[in-house]
Protein backbone atom coordinates (compact mmCIF):
# COMPACT_ATOMS: atom_id res chain seq x y z
CA UNK A 1 0.00 0.00 0.00
CA UNK A 2 2.85 2.31 0.75
CA UNK A 3 4.27 1.72 -2.73
CA UNK A 4 0.91 2.60 -4.30
CA UNK A 5 0.98 5.86 -2.40
CA UNK A 6 4.56 6.49 -3.47
CA UNK A 7 3.69 5.93 -7.13
CA UNK A 8 0.69 8.23 -6.88
CA UNK A 9 2.84 10.97 -5.33
CA UNK A 10 5.38 10.34 -8.10
CA UNK A 11 2.78 10.73 -10.82
CA UNK A 12 1.65 14.01 -9.31
CA UNK A 13 5.24 15.24 -8.96
CA UNK A 14 5.67 14.34 -12.63
CA UNK A 15 3.09 17.00 -13.42
CA UNK A 16 5.39 19.64 -11.94
CA UNK A 17 8.33 18.34 -13.96
CA UNK A 18 6.16 18.42 -17.08
CA UNK A 19 5.31 22.06 -16.35
CA UNK A 20 9.02 22.86 -16.15
CA UNK A 21 9.62 20.96 -19.38
CA UNK A 22 6.74 22.09 -21.61
CA UNK A 23 8.41 25.30 -22.81
CA UNK A 24 11.71 23.55 -23.39
CA UNK A 25 9.93 20.84 -25.37
CA UNK A 26 8.07 23.39 -27.48
CA UNK A 27 11.19 25.38 -28.35
CA UNK A 28 13.02 22.21 -29.28
CA UNK A 29 10.10 20.85 -31.26
CA UNK A 30 9.84 23.91 -33.48
CA UNK A 31 13.38 25.29 -33.72
CA UNK A 32 15.49 22.26 -32.81
CA UNK A 33 17.37 24.32 -30.26
CA UNK A 34 18.02 23.37 -26.64
CA UNK A 35 17.40 26.44 -24.55
CA UNK A 36 20.02 26.04 -21.84
CA UNK A 37 18.58 29.07 -20.04
CA UNK A 38 15.09 27.57 -19.72
CA UNK A 39 15.45 26.95 -15.97
CA UNK A 40 16.73 30.48 -15.49
CA UNK A 41 13.75 31.87 -17.39
CA UNK A 42 11.51 29.96 -14.94
CA UNK A 43 13.38 31.57 -12.05
CA UNK A 44 13.23 34.99 -13.73
CA UNK A 45 9.46 34.55 -14.06
CA UNK A 46 9.48 33.57 -10.37
CA UNK A 47 11.02 36.90 -9.45
CA UNK A 48 8.51 38.72 -11.64
CA UNK A 49 5.75 36.95 -9.70
CA UNK A 50 7.50 37.83 -6.44
CA UNK A 51 7.74 41.53 -7.29
CA UNK A 52 4.09 41.60 -8.38
CA UNK A 53 2.99 39.86 -5.17
CA UNK A 54 5.03 42.24 -3.00
CA UNK A 55 3.68 45.29 -4.81
CA UNK A 56 0.03 44.34 -4.91
CA UNK A 57 -0.40 41.63 -2.22
CA UNK A 58 -2.53 39.55 -4.54
CA UNK A 59 -2.52 35.77 -4.94
CA UNK A 60 0.55 34.55 -6.88
CA UNK A 61 -1.71 32.88 -9.46
CA UNK A 62 -3.36 36.20 -10.26
CA UNK A 63 0.02 37.77 -11.10
CA UNK A 64 0.15 35.44 -14.11
CA UNK A 65 -2.16 37.90 -15.84
CA UNK A 66 0.90 40.17 -16.04
CA UNK A 67 3.80 37.73 -15.89
CA UNK A 68 2.66 35.41 -18.68
CA UNK A 69 2.31 38.14 -21.34
CA UNK A 70 5.54 39.75 -20.12
CA UNK A 71 7.46 36.50 -20.59
CA UNK A 72 5.81 36.03 -24.00
CA UNK A 73 7.03 39.44 -25.14
CA UNK A 74 10.51 38.75 -23.75
CA UNK A 75 10.62 35.44 -25.63
CA UNK A 76 9.43 37.01 -28.89
CA UNK A 77 12.01 39.80 -28.69
CA UNK A 78 14.90 37.51 -27.69
CA UNK A 79 14.16 35.10 -30.53
CA UNK A 80 13.72 37.83 -33.13
CA UNK A 81 16.58 39.96 -31.89
CA UNK A 82 19.17 37.41 -30.77
CA UNK A 83 18.47 33.70 -31.22
CA UNK A 84 17.35 33.99 -34.85
CA UNK A 85 20.92 34.89 -35.81
CA UNK A 86 22.26 31.69 -34.23
CA UNK A 87 20.05 29.29 -36.16
CA UNK A 88 22.14 29.17 -39.32
CA UNK A 89 25.41 28.06 -37.77
CA UNK A 90 24.61 24.53 -36.61
CA UNK A 91 23.88 23.23 -33.11
CA UNK A 92 26.61 25.02 -31.15
CA UNK A 93 25.75 28.75 -31.49
CA UNK A 94 22.24 28.50 -29.95
CA UNK A 95 23.68 26.46 -27.07
CA UNK A 96 26.37 29.05 -26.41
CA UNK A 97 24.01 32.01 -26.68
CA UNK A 98 21.38 30.51 -24.36
CA UNK A 99 24.17 29.59 -21.96
CA UNK A 100 25.17 33.24 -22.04
CA UNK A 101 21.57 34.24 -21.30
CA UNK A 102 21.66 31.87 -18.33
CA UNK A 103 24.74 33.62 -16.92
CA UNK A 104 23.22 37.05 -17.48
CA UNK A 105 19.91 36.16 -15.81
CA UNK A 106 21.55 34.52 -12.78
CA UNK A 107 23.91 37.42 -12.16
CA UNK A 108 21.31 40.04 -12.90
CA UNK A 109 18.96 38.47 -10.34
CA UNK A 110 21.78 38.21 -7.75
CA UNK A 111 22.47 41.89 -8.28
CA UNK A 112 18.83 42.89 -7.96
CA UNK A 113 17.51 40.49 -5.35
CA UNK A 114 20.58 39.11 -3.49
CA UNK A 115 21.15 35.37 -3.07
CA UNK A 116 18.40 35.01 -0.41
CA UNK A 117 15.94 32.23 -1.08
CA UNK A 118 12.40 33.22 -1.93
CA UNK A 119 9.06 31.47 -2.07
CA UNK A 120 5.33 32.12 -2.12
CA UNK A 121 2.77 31.54 0.59
CA UNK A 122 -0.65 30.18 -0.13
CA UNK A 123 -1.81 29.32 3.37
CA UNK A 124 -3.73 26.08 3.82
CA UNK A 125 -3.76 25.41 0.09
CA UNK A 126 -0.04 24.60 0.03
CA UNK A 127 -0.20 22.17 2.93
CA UNK A 128 -3.74 20.79 2.85
CA UNK A 129 -4.57 17.41 1.46
CA UNK A 130 -7.49 15.20 0.63
CA UNK A 131 -7.57 11.70 2.11
CA UNK A 132 -8.50 9.03 -0.40
CA UNK A 133 -7.99 5.86 1.61
CA UNK A 134 -6.48 5.25 5.03
CA UNK A 135 -3.00 5.08 3.48
CA UNK A 136 -3.30 7.49 0.60
CA UNK A 137 -3.60 11.24 0.91
CA UNK A 138 -3.15 13.63 -1.97
CA UNK A 139 -2.04 17.22 -1.45
CA UNK A 140 -4.13 19.98 -2.95
CA UNK A 141 -1.05 21.68 -4.38
CA UNK A 142 0.30 18.61 -6.26
CA UNK A 143 -3.21 17.81 -7.46
CA UNK A 144 -3.56 21.35 -8.77
CA UNK A 145 -0.26 21.44 -10.63
CA UNK A 146 -0.98 18.02 -12.10
CA UNK A 147 -4.32 19.18 -13.49
CA UNK A 148 -2.74 22.43 -14.70
CA UNK A 149 0.11 20.51 -16.39
CA UNK A 150 -2.33 18.30 -18.27
CA UNK A 151 -4.47 21.28 -19.23
CA UNK A 152 -1.44 23.25 -20.41
CA UNK A 153 -0.04 20.41 -22.50
CA UNK A 154 -3.46 19.63 -23.98
CA UNK A 155 -3.85 23.31 -24.85
CA UNK A 156 -0.40 23.43 -26.47
CA UNK A 157 -1.20 20.22 -28.33
CA UNK A 158 -4.47 21.69 -29.59
CA UNK A 159 -2.58 24.81 -30.65
CA UNK A 160 -0.15 22.65 -32.62
CA UNK A 161 -2.73 20.43 -34.26
CA UNK A 162 -5.75 22.65 -34.84
CA UNK A 163 -4.63 26.22 -35.51
CA UNK A 164 -2.92 27.86 -38.45
CA UNK A 165 -0.08 29.12 -36.24
CA UNK A 166 0.43 25.56 -34.98
CA UNK A 167 0.42 24.27 -38.53
CA UNK A 168 3.09 26.86 -39.24
CA UNK A 169 5.11 25.60 -36.25
CA UNK A 170 5.04 22.04 -37.57
CA UNK A 171 5.82 23.12 -41.12
CA UNK A 172 8.74 25.27 -39.93
CA UNK A 173 10.06 22.33 -37.92
CA UNK A 174 9.88 20.20 -41.07
CA UNK A 175 11.45 22.63 -43.52
CA UNK A 176 12.52 26.18 -42.71
CA UNK A 177 13.23 27.29 -46.27
CA UNK A 178 10.03 25.95 -47.79
CA UNK A 179 7.95 27.76 -45.16
CA UNK A 180 9.21 31.00 -46.69
CA UNK A 181 7.95 29.82 -50.07
CA UNK A 182 4.49 29.69 -48.46
CA UNK A 183 4.63 33.47 -48.00
CA UNK A 184 5.38 33.11 -44.31
CA UNK A 185 8.07 35.01 -42.43
CA UNK A 186 9.80 32.13 -40.67
CA UNK A 187 11.37 34.56 -38.18
CA UNK A 188 7.89 35.49 -36.96
CA UNK A 189 6.93 31.81 -36.64
CA UNK A 190 10.02 31.08 -34.55
CA UNK A 191 9.54 34.18 -32.42
CA UNK A 192 5.94 33.16 -31.69
CA UNK A 193 7.14 29.68 -30.71
CA UNK A 194 9.79 31.02 -28.36
CA UNK A 195 7.35 33.58 -26.97
CA UNK A 196 4.86 30.83 -26.14
CA UNK A 197 7.68 28.67 -24.72
CA UNK A 198 8.63 31.45 -22.28
CA UNK A 199 4.99 32.25 -21.53
CA UNK A 200 4.72 28.78 -19.97
CA UNK A 201 7.49 29.62 -17.49
CA UNK A 202 5.15 31.88 -15.52
CA UNK A 203 2.89 28.99 -14.51
CA UNK A 204 5.92 26.79 -13.78
CA UNK A 205 7.40 29.55 -11.61
CA UNK A 206 4.32 29.96 -9.41
CA UNK A 207 4.24 26.24 -8.63
CA UNK A 208 8.00 26.17 -8.12
CA UNK A 209 7.72 28.94 -5.54
CA UNK A 210 4.79 27.26 -3.76
CA UNK A 211 6.49 23.86 -3.74
CA UNK A 212 9.93 24.94 -2.62
CA UNK A 213 12.07 28.03 -2.30
CA UNK A 214 14.22 29.39 -5.10
CA UNK A 215 17.29 31.57 -5.45
CA UNK A 216 18.81 33.33 -8.48
CA UNK A 217 20.90 30.20 -9.14
CA UNK A 218 18.05 27.65 -8.94
CA UNK A 219 17.59 27.61 -12.71
CA UNK A 220 20.07 24.93 -13.80
CA UNK A 221 18.49 22.34 -11.47
CA UNK A 222 15.07 23.01 -13.06
CA UNK A 223 16.65 22.83 -16.51
CA UNK A 224 18.12 19.42 -15.72
CA UNK A 225 14.76 17.97 -14.70
CA UNK A 226 13.05 19.58 -17.68
CA UNK A 227 15.69 18.36 -20.08
CA UNK A 228 15.47 14.81 -18.75
CA UNK A 229 11.69 14.84 -19.06
CA UNK A 230 11.91 16.03 -22.68
CA UNK A 231 14.50 13.41 -23.62
CA UNK A 232 12.72 10.55 -21.87
CA UNK A 233 9.44 11.52 -23.51
CA UNK A 234 10.98 11.85 -26.94
CA UNK A 235 12.33 15.11 -28.37
CA UNK A 236 9.66 17.33 -29.82
CA UNK A 237 6.65 15.43 -28.50
CA UNK A 238 4.45 17.38 -26.08
CA UNK A 239 2.51 14.30 -24.99
CA UNK A 240 5.83 12.53 -24.47
CA UNK A 241 6.99 15.40 -22.29
CA UNK A 242 4.10 14.84 -19.87
CA UNK A 243 4.80 11.11 -19.75
CA UNK A 244 8.53 11.76 -19.40
CA UNK A 245 7.80 14.03 -16.43
CA UNK A 246 5.67 11.33 -14.84
CA UNK A 247 8.38 8.69 -15.33
CA UNK A 248 10.85 11.02 -13.60
CA UNK A 249 8.41 11.80 -10.80
CA UNK A 250 7.84 8.12 -10.04
CA UNK A 251 11.59 7.48 -10.21
CA UNK A 252 12.12 10.29 -7.70
CA UNK A 253 9.54 9.20 -5.11
CA UNK A 254 10.48 5.51 -5.38
CA UNK A 255 14.13 6.45 -4.90
CA UNK A 256 13.24 8.51 -1.85
CA UNK A 257 11.31 5.54 -0.44
CA UNK A 258 14.42 3.39 -0.66
CA UNK A 259 16.54 5.95 1.13
CA UNK A 260 16.23 9.70 1.65
CA UNK A 261 18.38 11.53 -0.90
CA UNK A 262 18.19 8.73 -3.45
CA UNK A 263 15.34 10.36 -5.34
CA UNK A 264 17.49 12.55 -7.55
CA UNK A 265 19.96 9.74 -8.11
CA UNK A 266 17.25 7.36 -9.22
CA UNK A 267 15.90 10.07 -11.58
CA UNK A 268 19.28 10.38 -13.25
CA UNK A 269 19.67 6.59 -13.47
CA UNK A 270 16.33 6.27 -15.27
CA UNK A 271 17.42 9.05 -17.60
CA UNK A 272 20.71 7.28 -18.34
CA UNK A 273 18.91 3.99 -18.91
CA UNK A 274 16.59 5.62 -21.45
CA UNK A 275 19.55 7.26 -23.21
CA UNK A 276 21.32 3.92 -23.36
CA UNK A 277 18.44 1.71 -24.48
CA UNK A 278 15.90 4.01 -26.14
CA UNK A 279 17.84 7.15 -27.16
CA UNK A 280 14.95 8.47 -29.25
CA UNK A 281 12.79 8.53 -26.11
CA UNK A 282 9.95 6.36 -24.93
CA UNK A 283 7.22 8.17 -26.82
CA UNK A 284 8.96 9.86 -29.75
CA UNK A 285 6.80 11.41 -32.41
CA UNK A 286 6.69 9.44 -35.60
CA UNK A 287 5.33 10.45 -38.96
CA UNK A 288 1.63 9.86 -38.83
CA UNK A 289 0.52 7.01 -41.01
CA UNK A 290 -2.36 7.22 -43.44
Amino acid sequence: MQTVNTVIQGILLGGLFALFASGLSLAFGVMRIVNVAHGDFIVLAGYLVLVSVNETHINPFLTLVIVTPAMFVLGYVLQRGVLQFTLKGGVLPPLLVTFGMSVVIQNGLQQGFSADSQGFLAGGFATGSVTITRDIAVGWLPLTWFVVAIALLLALNALFENTSIGRGFRAAADDQETVQLMGIDHRHVYAMAFGIALATTGVAAVFLGLYTSFTPTSGPAQLLVAFEAVVIGGLGSLRGTLLGGIVLGIAFTLGEQIAPGWGTLSQHLVFLAVLAFRPTGLFSRQTREA
Partner: peptide
Protein backbone atom coordinates in the same frame (compact mmCIF):
# COMPACT_ATOMS: atom_id res chain seq x y z
CA UNK B 1 5.28 35.18 -52.55
CA UNK B 2 2.60 37.63 -51.45
CA UNK B 3 3.08 39.57 -54.70
CA UNK B 4 2.14 36.44 -56.62
CA UNK B 5 5.35 34.49 -57.23
CA UNK B 6 5.40 30.79 -56.42
CA UNK B 7 8.10 28.16 -56.64
CA UNK B 8 7.62 24.39 -56.63
CA UNK B 9 11.10 23.54 -55.38
CA UNK B 10 13.44 20.90 -56.69
CA UNK B 11 13.05 17.72 -54.67
CA UNK B 12 9.38 18.62 -53.97
CA UNK B 13 9.92 19.59 -50.32
CA UNK B 14 6.42 18.79 -49.13
CA UNK B 15 6.04 19.10 -45.35
CA UNK B 16 6.35 15.40 -44.44
CA UNK B 17 4.67 15.50 -41.02
CA UNK B 18 1.70 17.54 -42.25
CA UNK B 19 -1.27 15.91 -43.95
CA UNK B 20 -1.93 16.42 -47.65
CA UNK B 21 -4.70 18.86 -46.88
CA UNK B 22 -2.54 20.77 -44.40
CA UNK B 23 0.19 21.08 -47.02
CA UNK B 24 -2.34 22.70 -49.35
CA UNK B 25 -3.56 24.96 -46.55
CA UNK B 26 0.05 26.07 -45.96
CA UNK B 27 0.15 27.14 -49.59
CA UNK B 28 -3.15 28.99 -49.34
CA UNK B 29 -2.53 30.62 -45.95
Amino acid sequence: VRLGLALVPEGRHVFPSLSVEENLLMGAQ
